[in-house]
């Protein structure tokens, strides 16, 4: 009964195409002296993802298995893991597409292990925070203008839009050879986000990001191995962001960077007429 339900959850058909062995690294730093590998047989139906397979194991074979997930649709960035030695999102990876009879699962490397397949992503979030990933303005206080908007053209938006798709899954950090040897190197995700804000026409915070993003553990430690862009599940292309930030820093060092024309704050719309039949906005729930 449970088995049927779990197969249905995959959203695919119920016909078992083959049985695949899930070879999973198990480790709890608090209780185990060293990791071990447990193997589970998982009946695979069409469309079954690695995440579904893990659910099957948890429901039917070993309830103590730990991994992290939330959205099941490649949006939250929680389920990154090393799948057959390649960083992928478990929810975004179909077992049949791996074309193997054994799926080796390990937690994302270059992050501490919390338990089994759960990496400690807090170092990523700290690095991300360290580059001030938000609009910084000196002339207007954003806090005072919670409902204000800035003018921005489509061209200005397109310069950084690609980099905003990042879901902070950490796959790029697991693939990067420099992160592998230098824990203090910021890494592809934070550096790309630093660049994303640096070139945003609304932002005036480049100077505040400089020390982190272009310092001795910043963008110039990247040597363009390119693995980050290859593994990124959202097509963010962090390698591009980092190289462009190096170009920007180089041009700036020559004193040739054009002065940024900061986006102005748009005045509140007063003159526009409301279209007939437009419903009222719901009551505000947060004040």
């Amino acid at each position: 009964m449970i088995e049927t339900r779990s197969r249905k959850q995959s959203g695919g058909s119920e016909e078992v195409i083959k049985t695949v062995q899930f070879s999973v690294l198990r480790y709890d730093p608090k209780t185990l002296p060293a990791p071990r590998v447990d193997s589970f047989n998982v009946p695979v139906t069409k469309g079954l993802t690695v995440l579904d397979g893990l659910h099957y194991i948890k429901e039917n074979l070993d309830s103590s298995l730990a991994w992290r997930y939330s959205c099941r649709m490649g949006v939250c960035g929680s389920c990154g893991m090393f799948i057959n030695s390649y960083p992928r999102l478990a929810c975004n990876t179909q077992v049949l597409e791996l074309k193997t009879d054994t799926v080796h699962l390990k937690p994302l490397p270059n992050f501490d292990i919390i338990k089994d397949l759960v990496p400690d992503l807090s170092v990523l979030f700290e690095k991300h925070r360290s580059v001030r990933p938000f609009i910084v303005r000196r002339d207007v206080s954003i806090d005072e203008l919670p409902s204000g908007e800035f003018f921005q053209s489509v061209e200005e938006l397109e310069r950084y839009l690609q980099f905003t798709y990042c879901i902070k899954c950490g796959l790029c950090m697991a693939a990067c050879p420099t992160v592998a040897t230098d824990r203090r190197y910021l890494g592809p995700q934070p550096l790309t986000q630093a660049y994303r804000y640096d070139i945003d026409s609304r932002d005036d915070g480049s100077d505040e990001r400089k020390e982190e993003a272009l310092g001795s553990h910043g963008a110039f430690r990247c040597h363009f191995a390119g693995a980050c862009s290859e593994v990124c599940p959202k097509g963010v292309d962090p390698a591009l962001g980092i190289q462009l930030s190096k170009r920007r820093a180089f041009v700036a060092s020559l004193g040739l960077l054009p002065k940024k024309r900061l986006a102005a704050v748009a005045p509140p719309v007063t003159s526009a007429k409301r279209r007939e039949g437009t419903p009222d906005a719901p009551e505000r729930t947060v004040r």
């Binding site: 390649y86 270059n110 593994v231």
Partner: peptide, 20 residues
């Protein structure tokens, strides 16, 4: 084990990534 840092192995081996 807990740190799970690839270290020199990650630096030296190209793994399943691209030619670059």
């Amino acid at each position: 084990f807990r740190r799970n840092q690839l270290g020199l192995v990650g630096w030296l081996s190209g793994g399943r990534y691209g030619i670059e």
